[in-house]
Nucleic acid binder design. Structure first.
Lengths: 257, 257
DNA sequence: TAGTGGTCTAGACCACGCA
DNA sequence: GCGTGGTCTAGACCACTAT
């Protein structure tokens, strides 16, 4: 434990928007990571700029070095910072604006204020489908909720989503799905994905799919099959989704170890 | 520092293949992570099984808990283990065999012993291309190495790879590229990717592309545009790749925080 | 209540890059 | 040689889950 910092420290803290709330239940390393991220996104820390070294930062913020390191590691993993031994930690070049994992243009559209809408085409309880049950690694006779939705942006369909869930959700209604989204609905019932796997591919669209998405002769579709797995290892959702390729792309970023 | 373990400890260590070499330059947490991973992949630790808790594991291996935790965290990030507070750490369900980041079927084919081959179609030094230079975030008049390759598996073309590099590599030859691969060649010259971004999409193939990949009327292609960035933040490779969708898919896995 | 993971401390020494 | 990140220790206390 050191003193709580000099006047200069407090000035620098203000510049970067760093102010830790020790009474908050939010972990210190998380508060710090979030505030560093904000500083980067707001341009206070510029791409290529070297940030303060770990020891000094820890001292100034009255944290231990492992805690500061934990915060920085989180941002390194997500690609916002780059650490180099013997050199320092720098802000990544801005070509990785949403680094870390997969982002879809659709998510980004949503963030940017376009209003996506959902239309439920089919909602069936207790459907039996051996192929799907096997995908879910369940007994072939497991009853499933079958779900088919159309995703629209500005009134035009951009994706068709088919999902199957081996769950008992009597209060799942089309209205719910059109207003809140499937995963939000599940989350409110304590069902959260600990891990998901997606396989991205492409194939020719069927005539039904062409009609639903209003596809022309030369339009392409992207296919995504998805499996979601709860914390206890059980699978609770299998999805087969298709997207208009002219409206949807996947962005994948990777950081070296 | 505790004693070096009881006879029971040594037996359990042997079962899981855990044997740390303290004189090795490989970090302890990395050795432990690798050996736990092997135990999982070899089925010694089975999906769903709860592994030994962190404190006990640390004691038995004569490591500090943070070090053990570091090792486990690495596997959690890659999706092989799942941690739950108050419950324990369990081996993830096997539906995430290659968790962490993106894997392509092509890479997996390679691992499985299929021999992929490369054929260089075009290799030009000093090409000027304003569109590409902008993608690389460089001056539009930067001279580029332009490269076009065909990827074959068992003699049939499955992908066409176009790349542009703002580098001076006078000894880069078709022979090199057909025997070692582009990134291996670059790596030997100290050029390694600190971060890459890929955008996956789909579109109709051009007639040239149809001819090169021997595509039929209804065959689809996947497109991947790729940007690679060195540790200093400079971009050194821009690629536009197309793949036969019937031979190639992308697998993306995601772990919740 | 007992046991687990989650967070945090206050140091230590080492390996690497650069001047 | 000096400053940086990389690794590691030996604890501490808290929060959550299951019983």
């Amino acid at each position: 434990m050191t003193t709580s910092g000099t006047a200069d420290d407090r000035g620098e803290n203000r510049r970067l928007g760093l102010h830790l709330d020790r009474s908050s239940p939010v972990p210190m390393y998380h508060q710090l990571a979030e505030q560093l991220e904000s500083a980067i996104r707001d341009g206070i820390l510029r791409p290529g700029e070297t940030i303060e070294n770990e020891v000094s930062l820890a001292q100034r913020l009255d944290l231990s070095r492992p805690t500061v390191r934990h915060a920085i590691s989180a941002l390194v993993t997500r690609g916002l910072l780059i650490r180099r031994r013997g050199v320092g930690t720098t802000v990544a070049t801005d070509f990785l604006p949403q680094a870390g994992g997969v982002t879809s243009l659709f998510d980004e559209l949503t963030v940017q204020g376009y209003a996506p809408a959902t239309k439920v085409i089919r909602l069936v309880y207790g459907e039996l489908d051996q192929r799907i049950a096997l995908r879910l690694k369940l007994d072939p006779h497991t009853p499933l909720i079958a779900l088919e939705r159309l995703r629209l942006v500005n009134g035009t369909a951009v994706a068709m989503l088919r999902n199957w869930l081996p769950l008992d959700l009597p209060d799942l209604s089309a209205a719910h799905l059109e207003s809140t989204g499937l995963y939000e609905f599940l989350g409110r019932r304590g069902i959260v994905a600990a891990a998901t796997q997606q396989i991205i591919g492409s194939r020719a669209a069927t005539t039904d799919e062409r009609r639903l998405l209003d596809l022309g002769r030369s339009d392409s579709i992207l296919t995504v099959t998805q499996l979601a797995c709860a914390a206890d290892g059980s699978t609770f959702d299998y999805g087969e989704h298709i997207y208009r390729a002219d409206r949807y792309q996947f962005r994948v970023t990777h950081q070296a170890a």
